[in-house]
Amino acid sequence: MPIKRISFDVAGDQLIGNLHLPSSKGVHPAVVTCGPMTSVKEQVTGTYAAELARQGIAALAFDHRHFGESAGEPRHYEFYKNKIADLKAAFHALSAQPEVASHQIGAVGICLGCGYMAHAIANRSDIRGFVGVAGYYRDVEAMKAADPTGFANKVAQGKKARMHYERTGYVETIPAAALGQDAAMTMQSTFDYYTKRAVHPNYENRFAVMSREYFLGFDVQSAVPHIKMPFLMAHGPNALNPSWADKFYKAVPGLKEKTSISSEGQTDIYDNPEIVKATVSQAVEFLSRVL
């Protein structure tokens, strides 16, 4: 499938994206994709964007500020406000492409990308459909209740790192994915994905500690009343937090559908060819009706 490299600016920083296009000529319905924390466009969003294009829908995968080929300092900073603003700009950039039918734009989120996307498209009528794949529908109140001391300590750690950065310019980092040490992601499956299967020159296995100041408080559930477009949730019993996914789905006020993903865990949904193809097929069937 052809890939068109595009760039667009957000707050003076240049963002780089790959627009995956179907092989057929003409204009196409299209989506913006958004993926897991710390990830880059050559990983899960690129995998899904390529399969979407193979099945007839143009799809933009891009690097958010602070990551990959995109600009933005400090590096490896997982800051939800910037990610949401980046997505809003990405929709504008996508709709301006001559290969795209600007009146047929949708959204696809994977893992935490579902949360960033939900906030980015809140109350919008121009985004015609939203697909959430194996979403990490964070429930901050539940997280605080489960470990109030640990939650508060990590927020304080992030604030301290941010203040140190502002004084000195030094960015304290930990691994994005690791086992047996402090890291943003500590499950075996995420470690295997980011350090083995998804290794790419544009990805660094690093996470700015200052991210924790705001990241810990990023709540996905609060976006749900504002999901006005048709919504397809693709989730499964072995994906992240099925109970949070169920809570989010039940609260969606508009048209909604649900399909189940059969997987061993979360990250095989990112790159197992059979799972990706089947999940995208469900997404395309849905998007073809609503875009």
Results as ranks from 00 to 15, higher is better:
residue 192 D to A: 13
residue 82 N to F: 12
residue 180 G to A: 11
residue 287 L to Q: 01
residue 191 F to V: 12
residue 33 T to V: 10
residue 15 L to K: 13
residue 6 I to P: 02
residue 289 R to Y: 10
residue 125 S to C: 07
residue 65 R to F: 14
residue 117 M to F: 06
residue 1 M to L: 13
residue 224 V to F: 08
residue 36 P to G: 14
residue 203 Y to H: 14
residue 11 A to R: 08
residue 84 I to D: 04
residue 94 L to A: 15
residue 132 G to M: 09
residue 25 K to Y: 03
residue 89 A to M: 11
residue 182 D to V: 00
residue 187 M to A: 12
residue 178 A to P: 00
residue 185 M to T: 03
residue 34 C to F: 09
residue 282 Q to D: 10
residue 169 G to E: 09
residue 63 D to R: 09
residue 246 D to G: 04
residue 103 H to P: 01
residue 45 T to M: 08
residue 32 V to N: 07
residue 51 E to P: 09
residue 2 P to L: 04
residue 291 L to N: 10
residue 283 A to N: 00
residue 171 V to G: 04
residue 88 K to T: 08
residue 83 K to Q: 11
residue 210 M to G: 13
residue 286 F to I: 05
residue 110 I to M: 03
residue 122 A to K: 07
residue 112 L to M: 10
residue 234 A to C: 15
residue 153 N to W: 07
residue 54 R to V: 06
residue 160 K to F: 11
residue 4 K to H: 13
residue 229 M to G: 02
residue 150 G to C: 01
residue 249 Y to F: 15
residue 223 A to I: 03
residue 240 L to R: 15
residue 55 Q to G: 04
residue 92 H to Y: 08
residue 128 R to W: 03
residue 98 P to Q: 05
residue 247 K to M: 07
residue 280 V to P: 00
residue 188 Q to N: 00
residue 258 K to R: 12
residue 176 A to F: 01
residue 145 A to L: 14
residue 77 Y to D: 02
residue 145 A to K: 15
residue 63 D to T: 10
residue 99 E to H: 07
residue 90 A to C: 13
residue 137 Y to R: 04
residue 21 L to Q: 03
residue 254 G to F: 06
residue 291 L to G: 14
residue 88 K to Y: 06
residue 6 I to Y: 06
residue 69 E to W: 07
residue 126 D to A: 08
residue 148 P to T: 15
residue 42 E to F: 08
residue 98 P to H: 07
residue 264 E to R: 15
residue 52 L to W: 09
residue 215 F to G: 06
residue 65 R to L: 14
residue 217 G to A: 08
residue 275 I to R: 11
residue 64 H to G: 11
residue 143 M to D: 06
residue 197 R to K: 14
residue 199 V to H: 11
residue 91 F to Q: 07
residue 234 A to Y: 05
residue 239 A to S: 12
residue 275 I to F: 10
residue 69 E to A: 10
residue 131 V to C: 13
residue 288 S to M: 10
residue 288 S to V: 09
residue 95 S to F: 00
residue 62 F to E: 03
residue 270 Y to S: 01
residue 48 Y to A: 11
residue 97 Q to G: 01
residue 85 A to K: 09
residue 290 V to E: 09
residue 169 G to R: 09
residue 18 N to L: 14
residue 262 S to A: 08
residue 100 V to D: 05
residue 272 N to M: 12
residue 286 F to S: 06
residue 10 V to K: 12
residue 259 T to V: 13
residue 240 L to N: 15
